[in-house]
């Protein structure tokens, strides 16, 4: 392989270009990692150390105070739990309903299949928009309930099409053989199709979960009680609105000190909220790539 490469990239300009390419990619890796590491270090260092001294290895400059205050207050932890419920519920509804519909639409001789497809695809092009959707949710009495987060948008046409494409790609002989043996469609789906569908289920679930976990908008417009807030909404108060949760700074402190602690809490809360996904995604990298591939099949 090495020998072949030397033979192939023989021109001098080409070799220069490849070198430049590597250099730029290293630069990009730095551009991506430095801001992330800055936050990580910032969360463990006393306020302003990063700005005045840079990364310090003096143990006196290190502290877990930011994390302590976050755990003391509890609003981030509650947000975490709420987010798990919302993202989990959303994922279950989304994947289950999309897969069922996708399977039905992948069966060849289903009467009215075309009509159903049109029914779904129309929603890709038209939607009522924010205001009519809000009025509907209100009319349904779902304001300030988890249902407003879990149900709207759970059935995505995109997911139905993706799973339909996947099911169509499965060997037909399997279904035929089972059908000749007298198995019903329900049995075929449960015993033959589902076990073969782990990759698509996993891909859809990953995307649904992450999408819901990271969003704040529906929660912002539909939820009123702070106790129902998902993690992202709690984070928004801390990071954007600059509202320090009362439990985080209970002690009587000077304004400047409060401001500095608030900065540190920002770093710690970014770390706490982002770390789970950042640690987990490398294990799922294969599936993300697969998801993109399935999507590109149309």
């Amino acid at each position: 392989m090495k020998f072949k490469n030397d033979l192939v990239n023989n021109s001098k300009t080409d070799r220069m270009l490849l070198l430049l390419n590597k250099f730029i990619l290293i630069l990009l890796v730095l551009i991506v990692t430095v801001p992330l590491l800055y936050v990580l270090f910032g969360s463990f260092l006393h306020p302003n150390i990063l700005l005045t001294k840079g990364i310090s290895f003096n143990p006196d400059d290190w502290t877990l105070d930011g994390y302590r205050r976050i755990f003391q207050d509890g609003s981030i932890m509650r947000g975490f739990l709420n987010s798990i419920i919302y993202a989990g519920g959303f994922t279950i509804v989304s994947v289950l309903f999309s897969i069922l519909a996708g399977y039905a639409l992948s069966v060849e001789n289903l009467a009215g299949k075309k009509l159903f497809m049109i029914f779904f695809i129309v929603t890709m092009f038209f939607n009522g928009g924010m205001i009519p959707t809000y009025l509907l949710i209100k009319e349904l009495g779902m304001i300030n309930t988890p249902w407003a987060i879990i149900l709207p948008g759970a059935v995505s046409v995109w997911n139905i099409i993706l799973s339909r494409t996947y099911f169509k790609g499965l060997p037909n002989e399997l279904k035929e053989a089972a059908r000749i043996d007298g198995a019903s469609d329900f049995k075929i789906f449960l015993k033959i199709i589902l076990p073969l569908s782990k990759p698509i289920i996993f891909v859809l679930a990953l995307y649904a979960f992450i999408g819901q976990w990271n969003s704040y908008f529906n929660a912002m417009i539909y939820l009123e009680d702070q106790s129902l807030y998902p993690l992202q909404l709690v984070l928004r108060d801390i990071l954007i609105q600059n509202e320090v949760q009362p439990g985080m700074i209970a002690d009587q402190l000077a304004r400047a000190e409060i401001q500095r602690i608030a900065e540190m809490i920002k770093y710690s809360s970014i770390v706490i909220s982002s770390l789970p996904l950042l640690i987990m995604y490398p294990f799922f990298q294969k599936y993300f790539e697969k998801g993109v591939m399935v999507g590109s099949l149309k």
Binding site: L100, F116, T133
Partner: peptide, 22 residues
Amino acid sequence: LYLFLAPAVVLVLIFNYIPMYG
């Protein structure tokens, strides 16, 4: 199979089509 389709159809009808009317 229509039973399989039903939940998705109902949700899309409620959360996508009603706002279109709205």
